[in-house]
């Protein structure tokens, strides 16, 4: 069970705040008889002094995989009873992390774990298209801070070392450099981002950064285990094309057990309840 975006240490699953959606869902699953494994991710809990690699495919997938390995070790030392079923689920960043973990297990560690089914919800699986969508938008975007966090993460993790003045116009660049990505800033991408950054990131004229974005795409692969995506049609935080394009790409690769459940008229927040019970219903099939 992978958690969505959190901004405070107190929200880490190991601090057990039921207000966090993954903790809520994990508790409901536990009370229904499932064993719920809920990683904090790097940057929270025991690793709170590390920066969180936000929406970074490789570290999200590996951190979740290693917790499954740790739980298996725990089960070998206690009377914990595990059967062979492994379900993956998560919403928002947790949906993205779920897709990363499913792909990592099936493509790199099929000898260790076998996914029974996965149910990612409202994840940003198509990073390249999502970035282009943001940079070409003429509207104020409520999730612009999240995108800045993605840029900050990829700039650090891939070692580009680009200054904020490369990405952002003044005075926003200096404000973000000084106060971090969660400040109240300019929300219109045409005014916030420099023409150079918009040109480079949209048209691939910064091939290294374009490759970094593509390295984090998890929409175009062939899942073997049943995979059901969930998304609100009115999600203006993570637009549903992320899931719709993933469905088409996976089917084009011959995936036969992939599906998408769209919640009509629901946005990123209001679709959460439908997601929780959609997943519980999905799990009943196994």
């Amino acid at each position: 069970m992978q958690h969505g975006t959190i901004l405070f240490e107190s929200e880490a699953p190991s601090n057990y705040q039921l207000s966090v959606e993954a903790t809520f869902f994990g508790t409901l699953l536990g009370a229904a008889g499932y064993i719920a494994v809920v990683p904090d991710y790097i940057g929270y809990g025991a690793s709170q002094n590390e920066p969180h690699p936000y929406e970074h495919r490789a570290t999200l997938g590996r951190t979740c995989l290693d917790m499954l390995r740790a739980v298996r070790e725990y089960a070998q030392q206690t009377p914990l009873l595990l059967d062979n079923r492994l379900f993956l689920a998560g919403y928002s960043e947790g949906g993205y992390a779920t897709m990363c973990l499913h792909k990592l297990i099936e493509e790199a560690h099929p000898d260790e774990f076998s996914v029974t089914a996965s149910a990612p919800g409202a994840g940003a699986y198509y990073k390249t298209a999502f970035s282009n969508y943001i940079l070409s938008s003429q509207d104020n975007l409520i999730f612009i801070n999240n995108y800045l966090w993605v840029l900050e993460t990829y700039n650090r993790v891939y070692g580009f070392g680009l200054p904020w003045t490369y990405f952002l116009n003044l005075p926003y660049a200096s404000q973000v450099a000084q106060n971090g990505v969660w400040i109240n800033t300019q929300y219109n991408p045409q005014l916030l981002f420099t023409a150079q950054a918009r040109e480079d990131l949209q048209n691939g004229t910064n091939p290294a950064f374009a490759a970094a974005l593509a390295d984090n795409d998890v929409y175009d692969w062939k899942p073997l285990a049943p995979l059901r995506m969930f998304h609100g049609t009115d999600d203006d935080f993570v637009p549903p094309f992320n899931a719709e394009d993933a469905l088409l790409a996976m089917q084009a690769r011959g995936a036969t057990q992939v599906s998408l459940v769209l919640f009509e008229g629901k946005n990123h927040e209001t679709a959460l309840e439908d997601y929780v019970f959609g997943v519980l219903d999905f799990l009943q099939d196994f």
Binding site: A31, I35, A36, V38, A46, T59, D66
Partner: peptide, 17 residues
């Protein structure tokens, strides 16, 4: 491993029925 490849200690919740 963290993004730089160094092994670090991380955590998570295990919720048991």
């Amino acid at each position: 491993p963290n993004p730089e490849g160094q092994m670090i200690e991380v955590s998570g919740a295990l919720i048991l029925p």
